[in-house]
Design a protein around this nucleic acid. Structure first.
Lengths: 212, 212
DNA sequence: GTCTATACACCGATAGAC
DNA sequence: GTCTATCGGTGTATAGAC
């Protein structure tokens, strides 16, 4: 008997504790700042002492690593729904795709810093934690490539535009929505440059009866 | 006698020591990482003990603050020369301006992180250190506005494109030059979008006699 | 005035008792 | 599995030597 019901329950409990620790770490990262995480604070938040965390994680970096994997994994899970109801108009679909990533990165500074910047000295995601981010990137390349035939170079410009505007949002307008129209403008610039047909005026904005 | 020659020499020596400390801090930031600076290491590099640094700087943050001011001040000093020999063709001039900032940010990761990212927990530049960066921004807005009549929104897209490509360089090709053509492509995209006339083909690349 | 010696509170991490 | 005790290292502060 390689797996007994008891072993199952133990593993389940261990996994639950791990998630509890990660939830506490996320909450503290959001409130105190990603780099301000301390093992003592995380432990206190789950009713433990700092050294006890080493039972569940190899090091503080391993906690960051698991958070990194969670963040990209959560985004990956949001993709099927996004793909399911993409507008049939390619340019509108492109706007939706760009906005989706923008919104996710803008909603949580700590998460964005962990996912897309290198703010934690010495942190390098493990291959397992990195895997979902690679899949997300490949998926994005494929989706955009299906909307319009572009070179890898132009796709890198696409990434740079979205990423640049996310950084500007966090630097100049955190929590605001000032950069939403800037994003739309930038997406149209890129779409024009790669030769996407412009959205027919009647389809540009869904209008209700009676709207002037 | 408000200022004696002796006072002059003392102030001079103090300023020299300050610069010596900052130089050592830059060297360590480049070799060990910006956030890995320790007062003990900086002090050792200039032949002192850590507490002695407090004679010259109020705190570690004050050192970062002075470095921040230096970095933007140095860039500001590079601008007159840039402006002096801008190509007369607006689009070529735009390329030159974008490339100038790109090159500066790409040449030194630690400096770029200090200038344009928020990787040091709790660091906020003082108004004095922040001033040169504001002047650089205003100058950039003015120069670009003279090359082409654009809205503030479009100028923010301009900033986002350059910043986004700088980040991609540091993430994917540090020390390389893979992103130079991507930058050129992106600048042309933006120039097209804001209605800049394209560079006449004969002026695009200076050719020597006999080049095929 | 400048620097050293010393100390403090905090950090991540480890050893070992229970 | 969790605890206490502790280690080396950090930024910071201050008393006192020269």
């Amino acid at each position: 008997m390689l797996v007994s019901p008891q072993r199952d329950r133990v593993a389940e409990r261990r996994e639950a504790t791990r998630l509890e620790i990660l939830d506490a770490a996320w909450a503290l990262a959001r409130s105190e700042g990603l780099t301000q995480l301390t093992l003592r604070d995380v432990a206190a938040a789950v009713g433990m002492r700092a050294p006890s965390l080493y039972t569940h994680f190899e090091s503080k970096m391993a906690i960051y690593d698991a958070m990194f994997g969670q963040a990209w994994g959560d985004y990956e899970q949001s993709l099927p729904e996004l793909d399911a109801d993409l507008p049939s108009d390619p340019r509108q679909a492109l706007h939706r795709v760009g906005r989706h990533f923008f919104d996710y990165a803008v909603a949580d500074l700590a998460r964005h810093q962990l996912m897309n910047q290198r703010v934690i000295p010495g942190f390098e995601p493990s291959p397992e934690a990195y895997a979902p981010s690679l899949r997300v990137f490949a998926h994005g390349r494929e989706v955009v490539g299906r909307l319009v035939d572009v070179s890898d170079e132009d796709f890198e410009v696409w990434i740079a535009i979205i990423g640049g505007l996310i950084n500007q949002h966090h630097a100049n307008d955190p929590g605001g929505s000032r950069y939403v129209p800037v994003l739309e403008r930038a997406v149209d610039m890129w779409a024009d440059a790669v030769g996407m047909p412009s959205t027919p005026p009647t389809a540009r904005r869904p209008r209700r009866k009676g709207t002037p």
